[in-house]
Simulated scan of single mutants.
Amino acid sequence: MAHLHLTAIIVEDYDEAIDFFVRALGFELAEDSPSRTNDGRPKRWVVVRPPGAETGILLARADGEHQLAAVGDQHAGRVGFFFRVDDFDAAFLRMRDAGVEFLTESRTEPYGRVAVFRDIAGNRWDLLGPAA
């Protein structure tokens, strides 16, 4: 058996990113542990994930100019993350009320309901739900 365990999002600040994913998206904070860079500088190992999910997101603080330049543009302006929920309307309203920036109105596609939003770093996501 195999599964995708983690994917990383480069962020500017750990605590702001944790707040966004936990408060605005409803994720759980799975881990927040002290760690070190390859050259010994302090960092944190921060993982968030939707409740009950196996796959998590490593929130990686940008280290250096090259990584700072990638914050919010990890997928060159395309949607790069897809967050599927069972109750689209409830999630959409909760997220909007929490200040999440939606770039599109919700719409129905053959694969279900969808609306594009931006995360704390500026990356684009699809909020996906079942067809109405």
Rank of each mutant, 00 (worst) to 15 (best):
His3Val: 04
His3Thr: 09
His3Tyr: 08
Leu4Met: 14
Leu6Pro: 08
Leu6Asp: 13
Leu6Lys: 13
Leu6Thr: 15
Thr7His: 13
Thr7Arg: 12
Ala8Gln: 15
Ile9Pro: 00
Ile10Ser: 10
Glu12Phe: 14
Glu12Ser: 13
Asp13Phe: 01
Asp13Cys: 11
Ala17Ser: 15
Ala17Thr: 15
Ala17Cys: 05
Phe20Pro: 03
Arg23His: 12
Arg23Ala: 10
Leu25Ile: 06
Gly26Arg: 00
Gly26Gln: 00
Glu31Lys: 09
Glu31Phe: 03
Ser33Thr: 04
Arg36Tyr: 08
Arg36Gly: 05
Arg36Cys: 03
Arg36Lys: 13
Thr37Ser: 12
Thr37Cys: 07
Asn38Ser: 09
Asn38Arg: 08
Asn38Cys: 03
Asp39Thr: 06
Pro42Gln: 07
Lys43Ser: 09
Lys43Thr: 12
Lys43Gln: 12
Lys43Tyr: 06
Lys43Trp: 08
Lys43His: 13
Arg44Thr: 11
Arg49Ile: 00
Pro50Asn: 13
Ala53Pro: 00
Ala53Leu: 07
Ala53Glu: 08
Glu54His: 11
Glu54Thr: 10
Glu54Tyr: 01
Thr55Phe: 13
Ile57Lys: 02
Leu58Asn: 15
Leu58Ala: 15
Leu59Met: 02
Ala60Val: 11
Ala60Asn: 09
Arg61Glu: 02
Asp63Lys: 03
Gly64Cys: 02
Gly64Thr: 06
Gly64Ala: 04
Glu65Gln: 05
Glu65His: 04
Glu65Cys: 02
Gln67Glu: 15
Gln67Ala: 08
Ala70Arg: 15
Ala70Gly: 02
Ala70Asp: 11
Val71Asn: 09
Val71Met: 13
Gly72Glu: 14
Asp73Glu: 11
Ala76Pro: 00
Gly77Phe: 04
Arg78Ser: 15
Val79Arg: 12
Val79Trp: 11
Val79Thr: 12
Gly80Arg: 11
Phe81Gly: 12
Phe83Ala: 06
Arg84Lys: 09
Val85Thr: 10
Asp86Ile: 15
Asp87Leu: 14
Phe88Trp: 01
Phe88Tyr: 12
Asp89Gly: 08
Asp89Tyr: 10
Phe92Trp: 02
Leu93Met: 06
Asp97Leu: 00
Asp97Arg: 01
Asp97Cys: 05
Ala98His: 04
Gly99Pro: 11
Val100Ile: 02
Glu101Ile: 01
Phe102Ala: 01
Thr104Val: 09
Glu105Gln: 14
Ser106His: 08
Ser106Gln: 08
Ser106Ala: 08
Ser106Met: 05
Arg107Glu: 11
Thr108Glu: 14
Glu109Gln: 10
Pro110His: 03
Tyr111Ile: 07
Tyr111Cys: 13
Arg113Phe: 04
Val114Cys: 10
Val114Trp: 01
Val116Ala: 07
Arg118Ser: 09
Asp119Trp: 01
Asp119Ser: 07
Ile120Glu: 04
Arg124Gly: 13
Trp125Met: 00
Trp125Phe: 08
Trp125Ile: 00
Trp125Lys: 01
Leu127Asn: 04
Leu127Lys: 00
Leu127Gly: 03
Leu128Tyr: 01
Gly129Leu: 00
Ala131Gly: 14
